[in-house]
Simulated assay, not measured.
Amino acid sequence: MKLRIPRALGMAAVAATVLATTACGGILGGGGEKTADSGPIKVAAVIPLSGSSAPTGAFMKNGMQMAVDEINAKGGVLGRQLQLDAEDEACDPTQAAAAANKAVSNGAVISVGGYCSGATLPTLPIFQKANIPMIIPAANSQDLVNQKLPNVFLINGTGAQQSAAAVKFMVKDGVKSVALVDDNTSYSKDIATETKKDLEADGNVKVALATSVTAGESDYSSVVHDIMGANPDMLYWTGYYQEGGLIINQLKAAGYTGKIMVADGSVDASLIKIAGGSNAEGVLATMTQTPDTIKGAESWIADYTKKFGSAPGPYSTQSYDAVRLAAEAITKAGSTDGTKVIAALEAIDGFELFSGPLKFTPEHTLSSGGFQILVVQDGKFVLKDALS
């Protein structure tokens, strides 16, 4: 979901990547070419394994590996073992493009990665050119959907669905004015823009401020000054936890007493640590399911904890489900051929994910985003409102 440079530069990286691969005579291997019918089935996972989002990337990788191990223990897929190929994108579009090219060269036939939308965007044309289906477990910018690529499927709620949930809660909670602050990345800007549009259409909550900051800085006194001047009932921060934690810390130091809500990119224990313990108490969040909020997930959490030595975090369950869905689609297709697997994904009807029975919309998204409201209590994000 994270992008550390302006979107225009990110999309330029997409074009540059496509040109580079064309100049080299195309991408080798991948789902569009005839693949061997023996040996491991390679599953690509382009996720952040370094940088500020590495903790979330670790949760995702563990969830994926857990699914791979379970499937392999039961005989694998089409009589073959799955092999996870995790490549680091560090939430950087240029590194993500290189990681995707490496995964394709390594022989991946399906992709289950995607956390930072800005870094996921440049991987789309790479996997499309190789005819590799993409099951994206976390990245959810509307920009991903707007590409309208046949090989791209999202199993996390979209930015538009998150915005709708945010507005629903604001109205329900009696908020009268809100400051919308994003970090100018694809994911963050998307949510802020959609939320502003939805708020203006609803008419119950005034947008007191809509502004952007630059990700990666340490001093956010300028935006803190603007928020204090606007005096909103609520701040809705749509960026990531590194900057979100700093803004919360600096807002509290400036005497802000209004409500604070963050988007799903900030739902991580790191936000609480960076904000400074008590400063984060009561912070709200729009978020899809986390392991702790899923009814009946206790045994899965126990298995994960036993296997990896620590409790699962955000996007571990979605990543686990992405691998399971990939295995299901390959099984239904009876092949690792990209075109056949894409058709199998489109035909999925009722496959059980943690989020419920799956059937993709024509846009290859979930029919319901599944967003709920969390709140920080005693140093942890817990469920506040399921928005049912």
Results as ranks from 00 to 15, higher is better:
residue 53 S to Q: 09
residue 223 V to P: 06
residue 291 P to M: 01
residue 108 A to W: 04
residue 263 A to V: 03
residue 384 K to S: 11
residue 85 D to F: 13
residue 342 I to A: 07
residue 174 G to N: 10
residue 215 A to N: 14
residue 229 G to I: 02
residue 326 A to Y: 04
residue 64 M to K: 05
residue 48 P to R: 11
residue 194 E to T: 15
residue 258 G to L: 07
residue 213 V to I: 14
residue 182 D to A: 06
residue 280 A to C: 01
residue 317 T to K: 08
residue 127 F to H: 05
residue 134 M to E: 09
residue 19 L to E: 14
residue 267 V to N: 01
residue 151 N to T: 09
residue 11 M to L: 13
residue 306 K to Y: 08
residue 236 Y to C: 02
residue 220 Y to W: 11
residue 198 D to Y: 10
residue 268 D to K: 08
residue 326 A to C: 01
residue 2 K to Q: 10
residue 169 F to V: 04
residue 82 L to C: 00
residue 88 D to M: 14
residue 143 D to G: 13
residue 231 N to Y: 03
residue 142 Q to W: 15
residue 344 A to Q: 02
residue 259 K to A: 08
residue 123 T to R: 10
residue 111 S to H: 15
residue 337 D to H: 03
residue 185 T to H: 12
residue 380 K to R: 12
residue 254 A to I: 02
residue 279 N to I: 06
residue 85 D to N: 12
residue 207 V to G: 06
residue 360 F to I: 00
residue 303 D to N: 15
residue 358 L to V: 00
residue 217 E to I: 10
residue 285 A to W: 07
residue 203 G to D: 11
residue 181 V to N: 11
residue 191 I to P: 15
residue 73 A to R: 13
residue 288 T to M: 13
residue 209 L to A: 07
residue 266 S to F: 00
residue 255 G to N: 05
residue 42 K to R: 13
residue 364 H to K: 12
residue 133 P to M: 01
residue 359 K to V: 06
residue 257 T to P: 03
residue 203 G to H: 09
residue 222 S to H: 03
residue 337 D to K: 01
residue 349 D to W: 05
residue 322 A to H: 01
residue 357 P to E: 04
residue 120 T to M: 08
residue 236 Y to I: 07
residue 381 F to K: 00
